[in-house]
Amino acid sequence: MKQIYSSFHEAVKDIKDHSTIMVGGFGLVGIPENLILALVESNVKHLTVISNNCGVDDWGLGLLLKNKQIDKMIGSYVGENKEFERQVLAGELEVELTPQGTLAEKIRAGGAGIPAFYTPAGVGTPIAEGKEVRTFNGKEYLLQEGLTADFSLVRAFRGDRHGNLVYNKTARNFNPMMAAAGAVTIAEVEELVEPGELEADAIHTPGIYVQGLIEGQQEKRIERYTVKAEA
């Protein structure tokens, strides 16, 4: 049985200054909203954050940024956030841009015990600087190293007390790989259920990757509300 936290404050209390954390989500979809809020409150500093994006100015990881808790950000797209731009230009924030598929695979590799792999993405581009290039079957590839973290904060739709997780639609995104790549993985779930309630064949993240869980209600803010006019 896994640890079930009674508060978000308790869930993040072991995260100390200078920790490396992975945070699930694509844009604002699938982010562990309440764990991020608790981190803001905890005021831990000098974090290295690995996440595809960095939230928006007033939500998600943007809140950590605003509170100057992040020293370094590793992601693929950070263009939704003005404070991000300001901090990078002011030299307050280090950023390591990584192609999205490479980022996903680096995290997957990290969680799967693979120290490095070759990928074609980025050959001949600025991100190839300083990286080994090797040719296989006439095509060039870059050597990329796997990523792990001290803590992974993920968001799932449902989770059980064994840590098994199920995600909803495109809120899955980076969460499963991050769950595996964190030394300690904390899952914020919309609904905590009893073992046996999730169909074993339909579990996305097997419980072995998860150390603790907490149930949390989500706001689920929408970045680009796009609808079709009713006929």
Partner: peptide
């Protein structure tokens, strides 16, 4: 300002 390459380099 660099926004990032997103998935383009892989695609």
């Amino acid at each position: 300002m660099i926004k990032g390459m997103g998935g383009a380099m892989d695609i």
